[in-house]
């Protein structure tokens, strides 16, 4: 069994796939299948490609409903569950708030700007059936960014597993799905970057079959003056999350770990820790002061 290691860029992030296979030609075919699947999901849900499903839906905002396929419908169902489970904090319509907190801003935006952008945010305003979606207000947008990368990691792992691969790791920009073990029988090991010291590992975590994702304000952030703000913005208040510097969660699927991270980042004060504790999932959070919490810090 030989370790296959593929590095590539997708969904705006550095990605890697590792798996064990003894046959070169077969390994190449498997790598091809994986990349095709990731590119498919990227093209389908990208905000930057005019023909994507995301843009078809957003372009019709304020107009007619758009017909959607079963995969998109299932992703929206998932997003709906996240919205309900987070008391409205996880909201796939909150993407427009990036206009409120754009890079290069010198000060907190005026209240009128808040009003303008918050008016077109709110999953509860979206009208949906199993086969269609309608964004009722012009300018309203949905963004699959919070789920698609994680889903793609899971889907790629599922593909490899269906093809008979028993030991593999799929890492799409820090959203990591894992199956099986390393050749020496040891579990796969994932390093978590220190939020204040980029490039330094704060914890090294062994993952059995499952997934691990990290959300942090250190990688993707908005700079206003000399202050850094998280790219995650509270869809109710319009204020960027600034409670935690980073959170890492281990869950059976990357899509689940990812949404738990997002919800935790958006909670305020003790709410984040209470929420993380209530999931009973292994996690590691680093708060504003640099204090670590969660069961993963011991490892």
């Amino acid at each position: 069994m030989q370790l296959r290691y593929i590095r590539f860029k997708a969904m705006g992030c550095p990605c890697e796939i590792r798996f064990f296979h003894h046959d070169d030609a077969e390994a190449e075919r498997l790598a091809d299948i994986c990349l095709t699947e990731i590119r498919r999901l990227e093209a389908k849900y990208s905000r930057y490609l005019p023909a994507s499903v995301t843009n078809q839906i957003n372009d019709a905002a304020g107009c007619d409903p758009v017909m959607i396929d079963p995969e998109t419908s299932a992703l929206l169902d998932y997003a709906h569950t996240c919205f309900n489970q987070s008391d409205g904090l996880f909201d796939v319509t909150s993407g427009v708030l990036r206009h409120l907190w754009h890079d290069g801003l010198l000060d907190t935006p005026p209240p009128s700007e808040f009003e303008k952008w918050l008016a077109i945010v709110g999953w509860q305003k979206v009208r949906r059936t199993a086969t269609s979606i309608a964004l009722p207000l012009a300018g309203m947008e949905i963004d699959f960014g919070g789920v698609v990368k994680e889903y793609a990691a899971d889907a790629t792992l599922a593909l490899l597993s269906q093809e008979g691969v028993r030991d593999c790791l799929v890492n799409l920009g820090g959203d990591i799905a894992v199956l099986g073990r390393l050749a020496n029988g040891q579990p796969w090991e994932v390093g978590i970057t220190h939020p204040e010291l980029p490039g330094q590992v704060i914890a090294s975590i062994q993952v059995g079959s499952g997934a691990i994702t990290t959300s942090g304000s250190y990688e993707r952030f908005i700079r206003i003056g000399d202050k850094k703000f998280s790219h995650l913005i509270n869809p109710v208040t319009g204020i960027p999350a600034d409670n935690l510097q980073s959170v890492t969660v281990v869950a059976p699927k990357a899509i689940i770990a990812g949404s738990i991270c997002t919800i935790a980042m958006l909670r305020e004060q003790e709410g984040a820790l209470d929420f993380l504790n209530s999931t009973h999932l292994p996690f590691l959070s680093v708060d504003k002061l640099g204090t670590c919490h969660g069961s993963l810090q011991k490892e």
Binding site: P70, E71, A74, L75, D77, Y78, H80, T81, C82, N84, Q85, Y151, D154, A155, A158, L159, Q162, A251, P252, K253, I255, I256, S259, I260, I263, F275, S278, T279, H280, L281
Partner: peptide
Amino acid sequence: MKHKSSTVAALTGAAMSLPAFAAT
């Protein structure tokens, strides 16, 4: 005994309807 979180259960239920996880 650990109780499974209702949030995790709800998210798992919704995730399992995604096409990538349904292969029977």
